[in-house]
Computed example of a mutant assay.
Amino acid sequence: MYQFIETISVKEGQIQHLADHQERMDRTILHFFDSRSTPDLNSVLSVPAHARQGWIKCRVVYDHDVQEITWTPYQVKKPASFALVHTNDLDYSYKYTDRKIFSELISQAETDDIIIVKNGWITDSSYANLLFRTDDRWITPAHPLLPGTQRSRLLQSGVIEEEPIKPSDLQQFDRLKLINALLDMENGPEWSMDVIKNL
């Protein structure tokens, strides 16, 4: 049976953007289990005492129901190197718990993280959506593996823009940033483009 995850940011005991995670979980359960009866995250999630201070990552594992909830301190990781990796068979349109393929691709690339190229288009890193800067505009690839909740909010607010990006287009950008449910524009790690070893 498939299992999926929602990774939710909790700051000083306050759960962030829960409605966005609920919407994605509802959509996933409807698709895979043909069920409109989905867990109510607002009822299921109660921040424990040890997670009420600082920045916490709440990880919810579910199938047709919630199976596991963990609360762990979150620290922003900043990979030191990336490689462009081409693979046309990778499907991560839903947030599966099985992420073995990403570990394998990183191991093959011999870098800290990867930028995945699928069918000729830049998509995502192994754990985040991508942003590239040009002329003070931040652009996100129009072909992500998984359109994340943070990405959707930033697009809706007009903070970032969406464009199809090929590997050859990367020469026009000067900065790379990662975003996901925990990493916003302020907290997302950022690099110059020379961090990509085979650019």
Rank of each mutant, 00 (worst) to 15 (best):
T111G: 09
Q150C: 13
L145H: 07
R153C: 00
S103C: 02
L182I: 07
R59V: 10
T123G: 09
L155I: 09
S192Q: 11
I116T: 09
V66L: 01
E12D: 14
G54M: 07
E110F: 06
R175P: 00
V76C: 07
W191Q: 12
Q16E: 13
Y94M: 04
T28E: 04
L41S: 03
I122S: 02
S43L: 13
N129W: 10
K78S: 11
Q171N: 12
K100R: 15
E104S: 10
P189I: 00
W191H: 10
L45Y: 03
V159W: 07
M185I: 06
L182S: 03
P48M: 02
P189M: 02
L146W: 10
D184I: 02
G120W: 02
Q156Y: 00
C58D: 03
E6P: 08
S168K: 13
H143K: 14
S9P: 01
I5F: 15
L170K: 04
L154E: 12
E104M: 06
D136R: 12
K77H: 09
K77S: 09
E110D: 13
A181V: 10
W71R: 02
E186W: 01
A142C: 03
R59E: 11
D184K: 03
F32K: 09
L170T: 04
Y2I: 08
R52A: 06
I106E: 01
V117P: 01
N180I: 05
A83W: 06
W71P: 03
Y2H: 14
S107K: 14
S81D: 05
V61C: 11
K11R: 14
Q14W: 00
A128E: 04
T7I: 02
L84D: 00
S168M: 05
I5S: 11
R175M: 12
A109R: 07
F82E: 05
S157E: 12
I160V: 15
A83Y: 01
Q16H: 13
D184Q: 07
T72L: 12
D98H: 13
R99L: 01
P144Y: 06
H86V: 11
L146G: 06
S126H: 06
K177N: 01
A142P: 05
R133V: 01
E186A: 09
D34R: 12
V47K: 13
K95D: 03
D65W: 06
I5H: 10
T38V: 15
D194E: 14
I139D: 11
I29E: 04
A51F: 07
E23F: 07
G13C: 01
V117I: 15
R99T: 05
S107Q: 14
P141E: 08
Q172V: 07
V44N: 00
D63P: 04
W71Q: 04
S43F: 03
S103W: 04
L30Y: 11
Q108G: 00
R99E: 07
T7A: 07
A109L: 08
G158Y: 11
I29S: 06
F4C: 08
F33A: 08
S9I: 00
